[in-house]
Design a protein around this nucleic acid. Structure first.
Length: 1115
RNA sequence: GGGCGUAUAGCUCAGGCGGUUAGAGCGUCACACUGAUAAUGUGAAGGUCCGUGGUUCAAGUCCACGUACGCCCA
């Protein structure tokens, strides 16, 4: 070893790094990963590495393609951990496939339409409802939406680039582009032509704030959709007027009906009972609040006793009194057809409202007696069950509120009987009207009970308003028509984790319902349906392309700039006379709705390339995708809508491999929240630990297997410690010695193969381990087991640094170039295999090693190039096991490692095979003068204080011995057992073969000897015996080594270079000086001391060291 | 309100058909090792296996009831 590599202009350039993005050509010992990352990113940009990685895989020259679809994010905010997590996977898999020789094109996509954009724009414009949008004008509003949704694209690009995600932003797709939208309306028309869309008037979850229905899957978007809410629950009376088989008998009885939505009572048109529920009629006290007869579920009578006027008395409780007052009982199914008196007469005009069958008792299976009274109020327009039940019984669906959820003006008008009982609710939002309605009920004597009721209730996933269920006109995709096929096609999809296939996703498909796809909003792809504005001349037209529109309307829809544009309001301006109207007065107008945004994102599979108007061939070759990834919630979102459209349009799946990962949680295990500050800032992590550290942390976690992940700074640091630093340190170590070899001329290493004759067992071991690494990572990534790949890399990094390099240091001092070549080979392979998981740091190290253009342009290592050498691995693992047990022995015997010991006896099954190198490693590692290897089966264990212990196998002996087995166990534990003539007896009981095991154990303490048992696989019956006795020679050598250590510390303290020669002065006690004198050559050699001055001090004096450079490489 | 699931070390979680000394990683502490390493090695402390009752020779494991929390659905 000679000169320091990085000094002076007169020096030759060092051999390593052969290429670097750093300003100076050096491999620093302490490294800033974020800094390296920034340099590599800049280099990639200037070099065009990403493009090259795609283009070098030329399909015309036989490269296969790996098709990746990018799920479009909605970018009206900055990316968070969830986006980064998905982004890392979206990068990692394509990088791996590229190295495997595939061509992987990656286009970025932007989801741009829909309510989130509108809400954001409304907030900016200071608006709260749709009327304000209408008065501003749709054109201006949509301009605001467009600007809003593109506001963060630059920031997104910055984040995505910083996370080292290679994706094409130039050639991206946006759902607002006219090409994309044209493909979307094409899809709608396809569905329409196949009879898979229809218009319906059905009850849907409805956001009265956003004035739009939500689709079923939007209720499942996240955990905050269902939140607890307090609502009033009321019980009201409906006096029976007749009807059904029991009408005469029950006339005058009050049906007690229960509801949690008092605001739907004005549209009460039926009361439902359960067919098998028992109902009781109770005669209430005449002096109570509700004299008369009342009907409710028999088992709920006690619960209502007090409301009905029963009181506790000396004889009986109120509940008992109420039970006693039951006058008759009836099965629910017998109550069908009973008619009752409505609460109010707003809908009494049968001609006008079609209510001839209203106000009757219907029988429904869904009725239970767990809440309320067992009789449930039904409003046909405000519940799915209510609507179905009502339609089956000929009861109309009538709305009492407008699009904003406010009661219609008709409530202020007089009813047919000339009353205005609910005048004050007209124009009031439904939930707000509850109070007034309840007061009216109380005033009219119809209110039995009011209670507040806390239940979990759905809220709008965007604006967090509590939803209402309400009948609305909506377009549907008839998913139920082809859901069986969707279930079949799901079988062709490989899900990670696999349980999602038949679990979360499979179950969802089996219960799929028709998809409500229209939204009564502004910013979205249009529903391309035109209808006649005169119901007397009905006609419906559907258009699936710009050309069809031009043909029908004379021109494309054009925006203010004159460009074809399918957005509102331009598309709404296309009208034409209704051809089916001979009067020529009616006009074809577009239905105002826009499409659910999920229709857009589900369409990306074809719309991103403007299929079928362009790229027909491309599409056929690139559908389905080989791989997509998003979070698990998308089983109800993007995964689902992609699957619907692929099934309906192409009869095949949209993707064949999919990772559905878990959710990233804050450091306290809660959902990440800006206000709680429960997660490390993304940019801080990038700046302090780097993108590769974050990637490693996320990718090595169980989150890709569906579990959730808690983000902590410690977790991120751990990855740095386990993999990034070992990789860098190994590289630095290699470069340091390769550069200083041959007195500074340096040595350029080359790849070795395992048949090289120069290789030592240690070399064979690391090369075999390298081959295993390649095989393991390849297998793991082939099945998308990213965490498995990380685990293999982590273990390998440990082996490489803490075993191979540590045990090979002397060979590097000695310039044994075989070791250089082996380390080069190991590192070069390691960095290639790590490249998808640590793309930035691997790049810097790999280029430094090879001088190549980019590790990401390199081919994935071929496992066949790495010979499998199980023997080399097995023997070295055994050696490591012995070294580890030996360390524990030293600890137990209180003999520090620097203190040499005379002898270690190693008794193991394959002791002979360890002779030579392995033996030497054990001696070095444990600082032992002589290692004595002995075969386990040829050694008398007892003479080393090794005995046997009996363990009763309770599982085998228990069934035979029954209760007695406890006695045998006790005997075995207390030593009350024996073996004679092969018969084992424990606790006085004879045990049979298989009912016990004999294990080796240390049974006897010997002086000057420490013994431990080795009993793993491969070492069974083995043990170690350490001679702990100390001679004066050994103590002296130990002392000398302590002094060496002190001198080394002093060298470091003095900031000397590794190769500096020094003059050393040691002042110490006479014993210490004597010990150093005896080992002067060793001390001088180890510490590069040209001169060694020994000064004898007082007996008790502490050792003092001073060092001074006498020959140095540095100026 | 219904259905499902979970409860084990300070934290995150493993613990096939019940088998007698309940494990891992991280964290904590001690010691050792270190001229590539920001590391590393060895060990220690830390447990009412949610509670109560039951089945059994034997229960963290099976059963019943209860408690707490989570998810899905009305």
């Amino acid at each position: 070893m000679t000169d320091h590599p990085s000094t002076g202009p007169q020096q030759n350039q060092p051999v390593y790094p052969r290429a670097t993005t750093a300003a100076s050509r050096a491999v620093p010992a302490s490294v800033s990963f974020p800094q390296i990352e920034e340099q590599v990113l800049k280099h990639w940009e200037a070099d065009g590495t990403f493009q090259a990685s795609i283009e070098q895989r030329d399909t015309s020259r036989g490269a296969e393609e790996f098709v990746f679809y990018d799920g479009p994010p909605f970018a009206n905010g900055l990316p968070h951990y969830g986006h980064l997590l998905t982004g890392y996977v979206k990068d990692l898999v394509p990088r791996y496939q590229t190295m495997r020789g595939k061509r992987v094109e990656r286009r970025f996509g932007w989801d741009t339409h829909g309510l989130p954009a509108e809400l954001s724009a409304m907030k900016e414009l200071g608006m709260t409802d749709k009327a304000e949008i209408e008065s501003l004008g749709i054109e201006h509003f949509n301009d605001a939406c467009r600007a809003n949704v593109l506001k963060f694209t630059k920031e997104w690009e910055a984040y995505v680039s910083r996370q080292a995600r290679w994706v094409d932003f130039e050639n991206d797709y946006k759902t607002l582009n006219v090409e994309f939208m044209e493909s979307v309306i094409w899809a709608f028309k396809q569905l329409y032509d196949k009879g898979l869309t229809y218009q319906g008037f059905r009850v849907l979850p409805y956001c009265w704030k956003d004035e739009t229905p939500l689709s079923n899957h939007e209720l499942r978007m996240d955990d905050e959709v269902y939140k607890d809410r307090q609502d009033p629950s009321v019980t009201v009376t409906f006096p029976v007027t007749g009807g059904g088989q029991l009408g005469e008998q029950l006339a005058g009885v009050n049906l007690l009906a229960w509801t949690t939505t008092p605001w739907t009572l004005p549209t009460n048109f039926s009361v439902a009972v359960g067919p098998d529920v028992d109902y009781a009629v109770v005669q209430a006290p005449e002096d109570g609040p509700l004299p008369g007869r009342h009907m409710l579920a028999a088992e709920l009578v006690p619960a209502y006793a007090k409301d009905l006027g029963f009181t506790d008395s000396d004889e009986a409780t109120a509940a008992e009194a109420a039970e006693a007052a039951v006058v008759s009982r009836h099965r629910g199914r017998d109550l069908a057809g009973l008619r009752y008196q409505p609460l109010w007469d707003y809908y009494a005009d049968v001609e006008q409202w079609g209510t001839q069958h209203a106000w009757q008792v219907v029988v429904e299976d869904y009725i239970t007696t767990t809440d309320g009274t067992g009789l449930v109020h039904q409003a046909s327009a405000y519940g799915e069950e209510d609507q179905r039940s009502s339609e089956e019984n000929g009861i109309p669906v009538i709305l009492s509120v407008d699009a904003a959820g406010k009661f219609l003006p008709m409530f202020a008008e007089p009813t047919p009987s000339g009353q205005t009982p609910l005048a004050e609710i007209a124009g009031v939002q439904a939930f707000e009207a509850n109070r007034a309605i309840i007061q009216r009920l109380a005033a009219d004597g119809r209110l039995v009970r009011e209670k507040s009721y806390v239940h979990s209730y759905p809220h709008c996933w965007r604006c967090r308003t509590p939803l209402m269920y309400k009948a609305v006109t909506s377009w549907y995709v008839a998913v139920t028509e082809f859901k069986d096929r969707m279930v079949e096609l799901n079988e062709q999809i490989n899900w990670i984790p696999e349980n999602v296939k038949h679990g979360q996703f499979g179950k969802w498909l089996e219960n799929a319902r028709d998809w409500s796809i229209s939204r009564n909003r502004y910013w979205g792809s249009p529903i391309p349906v035109w209808v006649s504005d005169d119901p007397n001349y009905p006609r419906t037209e559907v258009y699936g392309s710009l050309e069809e529109l031009k043909e029908a309307f004379g021109d494309y829809p054009r925006n203010a700039a004159g460009e074809p544009d399918l957005h509102r309001p331009w598309i709404d301006q296309l009208t034409r006379p209704n051809p089916d109207d001979p009067t020529g007065k009616s006009t074809m107008r577009r239905v105002e709705d826009v499409l659910d945004v999920w229709f857009d994102s589900g369409s990306m599979q074809f719309a991103q390339v403007h299929y079928p108007f362009e790229n027909r061939e491309w599409f056929e070759d690139h559908h389905p995708a080989d791989f997509i990834v998003e979070y698990i919630g998308q089983t109800r979102g993007w995964f689902y809508t992609m699957h619907i459209l692929a099934t309906a349009l192409f009869d095949r799946p949209a993707f064949t491999n999919v990772i559905s990962h878990g959710i990233v949680l804050g450091s306290d295990g809660q959902k990440m929240s800006k206000s709680l500050q429960n997660y490390p800032d993304v940019n801080e992590v990038f700046d302090r630990d780097g993108s590769d550290a974050m990637r490693w942390f996320l990718m090595s976690s169980p989150i890709l297997r569906g579990g959730n992940l808690i983000v902590t700074e410690e977790g991120i640091r751990e990855g740095v410690r386990q993999v990034l630093l070992p990789m860098w340190n190994a590289w630095h170590f290699f470069a340091l010695y390769a550069n200083t070899a041959r007195r500074g001329a340096g040595y350029q290493a080359k790849t070795v193969t395992s048949d090289d004759e120069r290789l030592t067992p240690l070399d064979h071991y690391i090369l075999a381990a390298t081959g295993d690494l390649v095989r393991e990572v390849t297998a793991a990534l082939d099945e998308f087991s990213v965490a498995g790949a990380c685990e293999a890399l982590r273990r390998y990094a440990e082996t490489l640094t803490n075993w191979y390099i540590r045990r090979s240091r002397q060979r590097f001092y000695d310039e044994d170039f075989t070791a250089y070549d082996v380390l080069y080979t190991a590192l070069e392979t390691f960095t290639r295999v790590a490249a998808p998981l640590l793309p930035l740091v691997s790049e810097e190290v790999w280029r430094g090693l090879t001088g190549g253009r980019s590790v990401h342009l390199a081919d994935w290592p071929d496992p066949a190039d790495y010979v499998k050498d199980e023997r080399a691995v097995e023997l070295m693992e055994l050696t490591r096991r012995i070294a580890s047990a030996g360390s524990a022995l030293r600890k137990q015997a209180k003999r520090r490692v620097r203190q040499p010991l005379a002898r270690l006896t190693v008794v193991v099954p394959q002791a002979r095979a360890l002779a030579g190198t392995y033996e030497q490693i054990i001696a070095d590692e444990l600082n032992i003068k002589h290692v004595d290897l002995r075969e386990a089966d040829e050694t008398d264990a007892a003479s080393w204080g090794i005995g046997q212990q009996l363990v009763v196998n309770a599982r085998a002996a228990g069934p035979r011995l029954g209760k007695d087995v406890q006695q045998a166990i006790k005997g075995a534990k207390s030593g009350d057992w024996s073996v004679s003539d092969g018969q084992v007896t424990a606790g006085g009981l004879e045990l049979q073969e298989g009912e016990y095991t004999l294990t080796t154990t240390v049974s006897e303490e010997l002086t000057d000897t420490a013994v431990t048992v080795l009993d793993d696989a491969g070492t069974s019956g083995g043990f170690l015996v350490l001679d702990t006795s100390l001679t004066e020679e050994l103590i002296a050598e130990g002392t000398a080594r302590d002094v060496i250590r002190s001198i080394q510390a002093a060298r470091k303290e003095a900031d000397l270079h590794v190769s500096d020669r020094i003059s050393t002065t040691v002042t110490a006690s006479p014993e210490t000086i004597a010990a150093v004198e005896a080992h002067a050559d060793l001390v001088k050699a180890e510490t590069l001391s040209s001169e060694l001055h020994l000064l004898q001090g007082e007996t008790s004096e502490e050792t003092r060291i001073s060092v001074e450079a006498v020959e140095t490489a540095r100026a």
